[in-house]
Amino acid sequence: MKTRIISALVLLPFLIFVVVSGGLWLKGATIILGLIGMHEFYQAFSKENTGLHIIGYIFASFYGLFMEQIINADNYFNIFVSLFLVVLLIYTVVCHNKTNALDGMSGFFGFFYAFFLLSHIYLIREFAYGKYLVWLAFIAAFGCDTGAYFIGVNFGKHKLIPFLSPKKTIEGSIGGILTATLLSLAYGLWIGNVVVFEDVNLLLLCGLAGFFGSFLAQIGDLAASAMKRLTTIKDFGKLIPGHGGVLDRFDSVILTAPALYYIMFFLIEVKP
Rank of each mutant, 00 (worst) to 15 (best):
L185H: 12
L185E: 02
A186P: 12
A186M: 14
Y187K: 09
G188W: 02
L189C: 14
L189D: 08
W190L: 15
I191Y: 00
N193W: 03
V194D: 05
V195D: 11
F197V: 04
F197Y: 05
F197N: 09
E198Q: 15
E198F: 08
D199V: 03
D199M: 10
D199A: 14
V200L: 10
V200D: 10
V200W: 06
V200E: 10
N201S: 14
N201M: 11
N201D: 15
N201K: 13
L202E: 04
L203I: 14
L203M: 14
L205Y: 07
L205F: 07
C206E: 00
C206S: 14
C206P: 01
G207D: 03
A209E: 00
A209P: 05
A209G: 11
G210Q: 01
F211P: 00
F211N: 00
F211E: 01
F211H: 02
F211R: 00
F211V: 10
F212S: 10
F212E: 00
F212P: 02
F212W: 13
F212G: 08
G213C: 09
G213A: 09
S214V: 10
S214L: 05
S214C: 07
F215W: 10
F215K: 00
L216R: 06
A217F: 05
A217Q: 04
Q218N: 13
Q218Y: 02
Q218I: 07
Q218G: 02
I219P: 03
I219T: 13
G220S: 08
G220D: 01
D221M: 01
D221I: 03
A223K: 04
A224C: 11
S225A: 06
S225I: 02
S225Q: 06
A226C: 11
M227N: 02
K228H: 09
L230C: 11
